[in-house]
Design a protein around this nucleic acid. Structure first.
Length: 317
DNA sequence: CAGGTC
DNA sequence: TCTGG
């Protein structure tokens, strides 16, 4: 399908692609240059360009597919959750927390993506004891080995994320071990098998309709899914806007920048500390606490990445 | 030790 | 604990 640039009218402070796509919530968006990103969404290959008068996008689909601008814009509105008024939320969070106000000034236009729960769940099963670079390459490996081919764009072949049925096939654990997935190989395969046994084949996405606590508890039953991964899935693909994933970074930021009762006493991230942090931010920021918390964390990640770039630049001189 | 889990 | 830096 021939692809042309289309414009999605929205300002940079309504949607900042640079921060939103590479902050670690999704692992398949590739930065092509300073203002262009490319990746797979809803079975199509999308190229995005951030411009002063909006977001430009190009779509490449399977050969058989007929492109509909109305349908494509609907996919983007859903994925970027453009119906959610970010200005209003930033103002609210800033009024509640001076630290947020300070961090937010450096990262406007950050959004949570409304992701596919299957891709989101298996990606974050890969995230334990791992770094973003390696998580990204593992997710890529899953797609190349088990995902269907969508199309080729500029000499690169793009694949769908694999289906649950494919990941449940008997040889998968051994194959993933050979691909250096480590102990995550068993978690991925076992979780896929459990999901296949559910009567409701749309069980995962049906968790969008149940309360946060219920969805969180259900996810924690799956092998390789603990409190943190369950919260990532709740927040990023199940519409639980007040879910707060607490990882070592969030824990350290919380200890450093917030006065949360009893937190500084614990030497490690205990269950009690995990809950105390989540409850504190939910009380502080309200219904969209998970979004606010992600902005705070992205601010820290951005500083970290900037300092890494500086380090590399310095070492090259 | 890296955005945990069992 | 798997694996990579």
């Amino acid at each position: 399908m021939a692809s042309v640039w289309k414009r999605l009218s929205c300002d940079g402070d309504v949607l900042n692609l640079g921060i939103t796509l590479v902050c670690g919530q999704a692992f398949r968006w590739k930065k092509l240059n300073n203002e262009e990103w490319c990746g797979v969404l809803s079975g199509k290959v999308w190229t995005f360009k951030q411009s002063s008068d909006g977001i430009y996008y190009k779509v490449n689909s399977r050969l058989s597919e007929v492109e509909s601008t109305t349908q494509n814009e609907s996919i983007l509105n859903d994925y970027f959750q453009l119906n959610i008024d970010l200005h209003h939320l930033y103002d609210h969070w800033s009024s509640r927390d001076d630290n947020f106000k300070q961090v937010a000034a450096t990262i406007s236009g950050f959004r949570l993506l409304r992701q596919d729960p299957v891709e989101n769940l298996f990606s974050f099963i890969c995230s334990s004891n791992n770094n973003i670079e390696r998580i990204s390459s593992m997710v890529e490996a899953l797609c190349v080995k088990y995902g269907g081919i969508i199309t080729e764009v500029n000499g690169v072949v793009y694949h769908d994320f694999p289906s649950i049925a494919t990941l449940a096939e008997p040889q998968v654990e051994q194959e993933l071990r050979e691909l250096k997935f480590g102990y995550r190989a068993k978690f991925i395969h076992e979780t896929a098998k459990i999901l296949m046994k559910k009567c409701n084949k749309d069980w995962l996405i049906s968790l969008r309709e149940v309360p946060y606590e219920e969805a969180h508890a259900a996810l924690c039953e799956l092998p390789g899914v603990g409190a943190k991964v369950a919260d990532c899935v709740c927040l990023m693909s199940l519409d639980k806007t007040d879910a707060i994933p607490v990882d070592t970074h969030v824990w350290q930021i919380s200890c450093r920048d917030y006065n949360i009762p009893d937190l500084k006493k614990s030497k490690s991230l205990t269950n009690k500390a995990y809950k105390a942090i989540g409850d504190h931010f939910r009380q502080l920021f309200g219904k969209y606490a998970g979004w606010a918390n992600s902005v705070l964390f992205s601010g820290d990640l951005k500083k970290f990445q900037d300092s890494k770039v500086n380090y590399i630049q310095v070492s090259l001189i």
